[in-house]
């Protein structure tokens, strides 16, 4: 099967606007699948709460000893942690198990038969995978952290409201871009599975890179100052660090637009990279017969 590489236009992942309909179908199917598993939905929520609490206790214990002002104050760190828990599923830290299975049993070949641009189709599937769970989980998590915690007398540990209307708008914008970036990264991991027989491989390394460089392990501003220049340029901070800090006002309004452009540029670059690699992957799959 011959695939013509397409140069990305906006939105970068789609070959053409016609490809949007199957995309909608795929995303909706994803939600329905997820909703069937209610136990998992509740369990996932509890998991995120737990992680959030542990992280906060650790960070607060460190902050308790702080004598000088830090690049982030504890309130901003608390917001960072809760948003991270609410939106965890959006981070490209794992691959879609269904996809992995498809590679393993070779049924991925069917996707080549669909009358769609393969990259766009997979981008849609992956977007569904990335976005479905966090929207179901994120909203209750935010409500919990913002409303219930103060009511329970734990106001110090609560998620503060966005720093300003501008910050909120910037946050929403950056979140949309972060979702697109996360999808592009996940898709790179998906495509990499084409090269390993058992479908386990690069994704493991990706998990590691994403968790540390997005700010999930430790908020990026708390890293040593000499590492900051590097941290500021790598793509993964667009996934979490940038949106969360825009939200809490740690990134001031004047810097919001350049940060959005930053995420967008990385997204386009990774989409192009993904297309390039997929092209080789498909060629390989066709030659070897899956």
């Amino acid at each position: 099967m011959k695939q013509t590489p397409r140069i990305a236009s906006l939105p970068p992942a789609f070959g053409s606007w016609r490809d949007i309909r199957p995309l909608v179908a795929v995303v909706s199917a994803r939600y329905r699948t997820l909703l069937q598993y209610r136990a998992a939905a509740f369990a996932g929520f509890a998991t995120q709460l737990f992680w959030g609490a542990i992280r906060l206790m650790i960070l607060a214990a460190f902050f308790a000893a702080a004598t000088e002002p830090q690049p982030m104050n504890l309130t901003e760190v608390v917001a960072y942690v809760w948003l991270g828990q609410a939106l965890l599923g959006m981070l490209p830290w794992n691959v879609d198990a269904d996809f992995r299975q498809q590679i393993r049993d070779g049924t991925v070949a069917y996707d080549l038969l669909r009358p769609l641009d393969l990259y766009s189709y997979w981008y849609g599937r992956t977007l569904g995978f990335r976005v479905a769970a966090p929207t179901l989980r994120g909203i209750p998590m935010v409500l919990f952290a913002m409303v219930l915690l103060p009511l329970a007398g734990l106001g110090d540990w609560a998620l503060i409201p966005p720093a300003s209307a501008v910050a909120f708008a910037g946050f929403v914008g950056s979140l949309v871009l972060a979702a697109m970036l996360a999808t592009a990264v996940t898709l790179l991991a998906h495509i990499s599975l084409l090269w390993t027989i058992s479908g386990v491989g690069v994704d493991r390394i990706l998990t590691v890179l994403v968790t540390i460089f997005s700010g999930l392990v430790v908020p990026l501003p708390l890293f040593p100052d000499w590492l900051q220049p590097f941290l500021n340029w790598q793509p993964f901070r667009g996934l979490a660090d940038v949106p969360y800090r825009i939200y809490s006002g740690n990134i001031p309004p004047a810097e919001i637009v350049p940060e959005l452009v930053f995420i967008l540029v990385w997204t386009v670059a990774l989409v192009l990279l993904g297309r390039l690699i997929l092209l080789r992957g498909v060629r390989r799959m066709v030659v070897q017969g899956g």
């Binding site: 386990v200 491989g201 493991r204 390394i205 590691v208 540390i212």
Partner: peptide, 20 residues
């Protein structure tokens, strides 16, 4: 190849915790 990648991933995971 898969095994090596996965082992490396685990190794990094552990080191990252320490790095954190």
């Amino acid at each position: 190849a898969s095994f090596l990648m996965a082992a490396l991933g685990n190794l990094l995971n552990c080191l990252i915790e320490l790095a954190g």
